[in-house]
Every structure is written in structure tokens, then in C-alpha cells.
Design a binder for these strands. Structure first.
Lengths: 305, 305
DNA sequence: ATGAAAGCGCTAACAT
DNA sequence: ATGTTAGCGCTTTCAT
């Protein structure tokens, strides 16, 4: 700014006004400044600006892991929405460890993040202390729970479990097995499972397999093939997420479509609306659709083997 | 810092020294300051520090898209290595558009990124101008080309094409088809293809299908099944990337394992070593392994149909 | 070992 | 419409 001021013979204030698109600058002056900026290849210094305005226009995302494409999709949504509104995005992964989450949150805050996006509803005490003292906007995603301490944007995971189950039930299945990943570290999975369990007893020889993620379902699909179990004739298999290959696998996978990218956009948007215009952050329930494809069908009518 | 100085009756300089781990502080004083910091829940302001030191300890990653898990894996590697060295990571997606890349690079720089990680070897003129004037460390990944204007950390994509082809050739295949995605936007794919083409003529009815990514191979696998073509008995299918499900699909996919996460780590590390200790950034060739699984076999001995 | 003071590059009153 | 000036919160000589 100083340099441009010198080059144009104007004051730093005027140059700053041009940079920030202030209205009260003579068109002629503005041009002059703009030209000088282009000529000098000048780029304003975000740190200085942040220091002066106490605004960084930076959002922080705390992601469990980037190793699962579902989170990549989520992050993609966040990134696009942030970029669209001129916000930068800094990301940190937590490995599903709430203590790590707190530590990484601290890093993001020091870095200047003005808002945070986290996953699930389990927080470390350190994390809560961190956001309590500041008045820091944080949104918790993947879950919807109006009573949670943070505003939530996500699903009613219990209802999701029930919804998936309903599809299988409607098809006529009564003996349904559930395949899920590790529960210790993931409260969403636990809730989905609870939703399924709530309406299920344990019975032998399932006719349907409900997988709590598409990745699991894909494994099941391949495993079934290996064991020469026909899907869906002998066994129906259903997934969760609707990952991109779910439509093209064989047989195409019946699954619950979760609007993951949209969830990312909404989370980013909520934070940005709060930061830019003080709009309160509202919890938001996202619906999922059952996408019926060919991996589920009515159970076999007669007993086999 | 000011607040802590007030609380302890020391000067801001001393407090700053403690925060930065300077050696010349009395142990007693240090304790006192540390206690005050903990009590006040004080967090240093990164923007102020960046402004003062002209260092942001921030890396920028320009990723084509987060919608493909291969890039998520890559980003994961970058993130972990950055975090390990106390660097923050800001990410932007380019959608494989070199003009967008230049614009987003500008954003990352304004934000204070001290180094950039990009993909491939096609750059916009705007991008080149951007890094030319500053002495900004940038590493180009996914490719290895010692003669490229930027240091490259990645593969010899031509050789990769040849390597994959060799496996099929060694098996006895002579009629090999190549399945690839859009070429317009991806120079790595183009090179891999060139590598394959260089040693291939066009002949009818392939006995093997070389897919330039695992995602493509998965599609092919399912499509083959739909068309009741037995893999690998009638048709061998080979992929690229070794995504996580490649081992568990049916049949398990023969593919080229690319050390994607490691590439991310190396890229981040190269930047950090340069930034922290002035170590020159060296181009680095990453090797790929052929992972032989069950989707490839010798071609059928007699003509079918 | 500690303190005083001068910036880092920008924005934002307040003047003019 | 433009200029002056005082910080923003930290680091860093230079003194002491």
C-alpha cells in the first residue's frame, strides 16, 4: 500500500480505499491506483489486514480423516462454498480422536480461523473450554440434534437407521443382519445402529444385510460373490452414503443417499452468514433418500440348503 | 502478550521470549510467565506474529478436485506432514482449470502461504508470473520431470504406462485396449497413455484392458460382469492407483500401486525443509509397484465365439 | 536476564 | 474526495 501510495503520489488511505472497493474514490483516482497496483504486481498482505481488522476471512475444518472419500466430498463442499464467498479454508485432520481435535482446534484458532466445522457430537473438555471463552462460531456436522451444545447440521442418524430398515422390511425381510465398522470412535455410526436395533430382534440366517457404509457394502458384495451367494436373490445388501461407484457396481447398490457435499456447503454457509451479517446459526436437519437399485429384493420364498 | 506482561509485571519482550522459547530467560521468570499464560488462556495471534516475522508457517495446496479419493489421500499426506512440523495447511481446489489455479494461487499467497503444492506440469501464464517475482517455493507433483521449470515430485508417467503394459505383455497379451478418462484436462493421463501407445499398435478384439485409473477399472469389472465376460479368463483387466478397495473387489484388481500419500508427505517436507533451513528442493522420482492380483492372467489360448 | 521502543503492512477514525 | 495518524499484537534490535 505504501509503495503504491508513493508511486501514485496519493495517500495510503486512498490506496486502501481502492483496494477495499470503498465508494468514495474518484473514478480517475481509482484507475490510477489500479494501474499502479497491476504494474507493481502488488498483493495486499493478509496478515497485516487481519491484524488491523481483526478479521481473517478464514474458516477451519476439523475432519476425522481424509482417507475416506466421504469426508473428501464433505470437504469439497466446504471448500467450494468458502471460496465462493472469499473465505480461505484451513484444514486439519483429527483421526477421530477428540483430544487431537481439541489440540488441532487450538492450532486453527491461533492461525486465525474465525469459525470451525467439526463432525459428530463428542467433544473434549479442552475443546469446549476453547470455544467457551471466545464467542467462536462452531458448527457440528453429520448429526442433527437441536439440543446439542453446538448448532448441528446433519442427519438424524437414528432415523436414518430406521429408514434403511424400513426399505428392507417393506421388501419382506425379517431376518436382517447389520454390518458396521468400529463403533468406539464414531458416534454417528453408533446412532444409526441404535436406530436399527431399536426395531430388531436377533434372529438366525439373515436374508438381508444392512451395511452402515457403502464401503462395507462393497466388501460384502464381493464377499458374497466369492461365497457364490447370489445378490439379491439369496441375500439383499444395502449400503449407506451413495458413493459414486454405488450406481455402477454389480449389482448396483441400494443405498441411502446422504447429501454430503451439500452438508459441507451448508456448514460453511452458516458460518459465513454469521460472520458477515451476524445471522444466527440454526440447526439444520438434512434428509436422506433411499436409492433403490438392484442389490435388494424380496427374500427368497423357500428355504435354501 | 501485553496482558501477560501486565499480569506478571514483566515486559512484553520477556513474555515474547518465553513464548518463543528463547534461551536467555531465568527459569523462575519463565515459570511465572507460563503460569500467567495458562491462567489467562492466552493464545498468541498468528496474524500479528506473521506480520512481525514475515513468516506464516502456512503451506498452500492446490488440488484439482477433492471428489476423487486419490486426491484426498494425497492431501492427507500433505496435511499430516505439515501438522507434524507445525505448519498450517490451506487448500483450494482448481477443478483442473489452469486459469482457476492461477487465481486460487493468488488467494493462497495473499493469505500468506509460504509455499505451494500443485499437480501436473501445465501452468497458466498468470501463475508463472506470480511465482516469478516472489522467490516462492512451489513443487509440482504427480509428475517427475527434472527439466520442468518447477521442482517435481512424482512419477515418470510414461514409464508407468510402459510398466503396466509390460505386465500384460509378460502374461502373453498382444491385443490390449486402453481405457482412459478425459485427456483434455490431465497431462499425467496423457503421458501414461503415450507410454502405452508408444509400444502398441491398434489391433482388434483385445484380450486385456488397461485402465488408467482404478475407478475406471472398477467400472470395467462391473461392465464385464454384466456382459458375462469372465475376468480374467476371457479378459484381463488392470488398473492404476491401488485404491483401498482394489484388494477386496472381485476379482481382486491387478494394478499399479502409486505412493500417493507419500508423495504428499514428500512434497510438504520439501517445502518445509526449504522454508526452515533453506534446503534446496530437489526433484524426486517415485517408483510404482505392479501389484499382481487376480484380475489379470494369460490370454485365452483358443479363439472364442 | 530484562526492558524500551521501533516497526511489520494494513485499516479506520478523524481532519480537511 | 483525499490525507494524517494512531493503532492492530507481536518480534526484535539495542540498551541496561
Amino acid at each position: 500500500v505504501r509503495g503504491i501510495a508513493g508511486a501514485t503520489g496519493l495517500s495510503v488511505a486512498t490506496v486502501s480505499r481502492v483496494i477495499n472497493g470503498a465508494i468514495n474514490v474518484a473514478p480517475r483516482t481509482r484507475r490510477q491506483v489500479l494501474d499502479a497496483i497491476a504494474a507493481a504486481g502488488f498483493e495486499p498482505n493478509a496478515a497485516a489486514r487481519a491484524l488491523s481488522t481483526r478479521r481473517s476471512r478464514t474458516l477451519g475444518a476439523l475432519i476425522p480423516t481424509l482417507a475416506h472419500s466421504i469426508f473428501a466430498t464433505f470437504l469439497n463442499g466446504i471448500e467450494r462454498e468458502s471460496a465462493r464467498h472469499g473465505y480461505a479454508l484451513v484444514v486439519a485432520t483429527t483421526g477421530n480422536d477428540i483430544a487431537v481435535e481439541a489440540a488441532r482446534a487450538r492450532d486453527l484458532l491461533q492461525l486465525g480461523a474465525e469459525g470451525l466445522i467439526v463432525s459428530g457430537a463428542r467433544r473434549d473438555a479442552g475443546f469446549e473450554a476453547l470455544i467457551a471463552q471466545r464467542r467462536l462460531p462452531v458448527v457440528a456436522t453429520s448429526i442433527y440434534n437441536p439440543r446439542y451444545v453446538l448448532p448441528t447440521i446433519g442427519y438424524d442418524n437414528r432415523a436414518l437407521g430406521r429408514l434403511a430398515l424400513r426399505h428392507l422390511r417393506d421388501l419382506g425381510h425379517r431376518r436382517i443382519a447389520v454390518l458396521h465398522g468400529p463403533l468406539a470412535e464414531n458416534d454417528r455410526t453408533r446412532l444409526r445402529l441404535a436406530g436399527v436395533r431399536a426395531a430388531l430382534g436377533t434372529r438366525p440366517t439373515p436374508t438381508a444385510l444392512l451395511c452402515l457404509s457403502d464401503v462395507l457394502a462393497l466388501g460384502a458384495l464381493f464377499e458374497a460373490r466369492r461365497a457364490t451367494i447370489e445378490v439379491p436373490a439369496q441375500l439383499s445388501i444395502m449400503g449407506f452414503d451413495d458413493l459414486d461407484w454405488a450406481a455402477v457396481c454389480e449389482p448396483p447398490l441400494t443405498t441411502l443417499r446422504l447429501p454430503t457435499a451439500r452438508m459441507g456447503e451448508l456448514a460453511a454457509r452458516a458460518l459465513i452468514d454469521f460472520l458477515d451479517r451476524g445471522a444466527p446459526i440454526r440447526a439444520c436437519l438434512l434428509a436422506a433418500d433411499t436409492v433403490v437399485r438392484e442389490s435388494t429384493a424380496a427374500p427368497p420364498t423357500r428355504r435354501r440348503r
